[in-house]
């Protein structure tokens, strides 16, 4: 098969399809394949953490050590770095966000499995949830009207308010969508790139010759490199999601 058809098939494979239930449109109650992997990843996270919290020793070693290191990384580099010691109240939330995204991303790296965050449903849901949470925290602390008024940077002359305020509100409301799209696109695009290099390798194996051998080996090497890069990107995306959540929370608590 030629390249166009292979790519179509790749894209088709990466689409969510129904595992349980009939797909009668976007609002049907189905369980898609991505949902299965999401549930598997979340279950794995819960099991990992509950087992690790039982095996803690004073001198760290074993499974408990990894979980502790993860929590300490979130605590020092994300929460304390951005918010200071008053952010410790929000530590469980940020830890949950970080590890949910991380485990889902990592699960998708295993060949044959897909990341639970590789579909817009998951990422939009989490983005909107983060948005709701941090706005609610801000409103609870400052009151509704002062919080809405705080969108305006202080010191703007009155005759610019009608222009600046809507811009600020729009850019504020874009935040959940950018969070969701960033995560989804990184995961989805990573899989597509890996798939395309795989297609190149398979095609050059099918029509063996001098040129295709070179192209084939280069593609294989590229695929290995991209695989390593995907691991890096998985971690970075989880980190960025968590730290943007913290930054938004901080911004809502100490109004800009």
């Amino acid at each position: 098969m030629d390249l166009g058809e292979s790519i179509q098939e790749l894209l088709h494979e990466l689409q969510p399809f129904a595992v349980i239930g009939n797909n009668t449109g976007k609002t049907s109650l189905i369980l898609t394949n991505y949902m299965v992997f999401l549930i598997i990843a979340i279950a794995l996270t819960i099991v990992f953490f509950v087992v690790a919290s039982r095996k803690l020793t004073l001198v760290p070693k074993g499974v408990g050590n990894i979980a502790e290191w993860g929590v300490e990384f979130v605590r020092n580099n994300i929460v304390l770095d951005v918010m200071g010691s008053e952010g410790m109240v929000y530590l469980p939330f940020i830890v949950t966000v970080f590890f949910a995204v991380l485990f889902n991303n990592f699960l998708g790296l295993i060949p044959g499995l897909k990341p639970g965050t590789g579909t817009l449903g998951t990422t939009f849901a989490w983005g909107i949830m983060v948005f709701v949470v941090y706005n609610w925290v801000g409103v609870k602390k400052h009151g509704l009207v002062p919080y809405l008024k705080s969108f305006l940077p202080s010191g703007t002359p009155w005759w610019l308010v009608w222009l600046i305020y809507p811009l600020e509100v729009i850019s504020h409301f874009l935040r959940p969508f950018t969070l969701g799209v960033r995560l989804y696109a990184n995961m989805y695009a990573g899989h597509i790139v890996l798939g395309i290099f795989g297609i190149f390798v398979v095609m050059s194996l099918a029509a063996l010759g001098p040129v295709t051998a070179v192209v084939g080996t280069l593609s294989l090497v590229m695929q290995i490199i991209m695989y390593a890069f995907e691991v890096f990107v998985a971690f970075i995306q989880a980190y960025v999601f968590a730290i943007l959540t913290t930054v938004y929370l901080n911004g809502a608590l100490h109004t800009h």
Binding site: T178, V181, A185, N186
Partner: peptide, 25 residues
């Protein structure tokens, strides 16, 4: 501290590129 902020900046800038990528698909 600079490294942390760099990652945040890069993620925010990459997001726009990825918006284009998704639109392409």
């Amino acid at each position: 501290r600079i490294q942390t902020t760099m990652f945040i900046g890069m993620a925010l800038a990459e997001a726009i590129a990825l918006l284009g990528f998704v639109l392409a698909f």
